[in-house]
Amino acid sequence: MLELRLVQGSLLKKVLESIKDLVNDANFDFSSSGFSLQSMDSSHVALVALLLKSEGFEHYRCDRNTSMGMNLGNMSKMLKCAGNDDIITIKGDDGSDTVTFMFESPTQDKIADFEMKLMDIDSEHLGIPEAEYHAIVKMPSAEFARICKDLASIGDTVVISVTKEGVKFSTRGDIGTANIVLRQNTTVDKPEDATVIEMNEPVSMTFALRYMNSFTKATPLSNTVTISMSPDLPVVVEYKIAEMGYVRFYLAPKMEE
């Protein structure tokens, strides 16, 4: 028996919108402490890791650990039928090949249930150890989205360089080059507007902008984003979900051959 009631249903809608274009289908792993998902894109270049802890749910019941394979495009179609103010409940029964999404309007005058077929997914699960990163940049998520979008109109790849001067995003393409430098800026009215650079050692790495732009679909989930880099590891782009967990994207770098 599985029953999860999320009063802020729009959160689940936003989560799906942020990952459905990167990953086609994924196993949702439910346990008593919450649910998680890990899935790579089809080219094995990028990975999404999602965690939503049980404390963030109004009601959370999961009698035994269970994994449900879902097509994210189909799940997104169903969640789009929920209103932004709706309460969403996810229900499942042991051994069933379906999952039910129930949508309740805030005034309880409209109740809908959508039953979705589950699928068997043979997904590769990667072990991602905790790492010490050379540099961690925390910045407004909208600013990061803007930079990725702007640079993608010039080039295909972004070089992200962190020094004690700041963080630099650079690209080059047929029409020219672009460099955007952000300096650490903590003297802002609201903490979410700050750019904070924690640097142990300078680092400079190259990534495909196509993936970075895909990650920025998670912007509505959080006012801030953190970008963690080490020269010998994939970059981690993390959007924290207030009180509940996170969506993390991992992206393998492009390296000089």
Binding site: S43, H44, A46, L47, E124, L126, L233, A252, K254
Partner: peptide, 14 residues
């Protein structure tokens, strides 16, 4: 020339 690496070159299957 830059080549795109894969995550499986950094992380092992769990």
């Amino acid at each position: 020339k830059r080549v795109q690496l894969r995550l499986t070159e950094f992380y092992r299957s769990a």
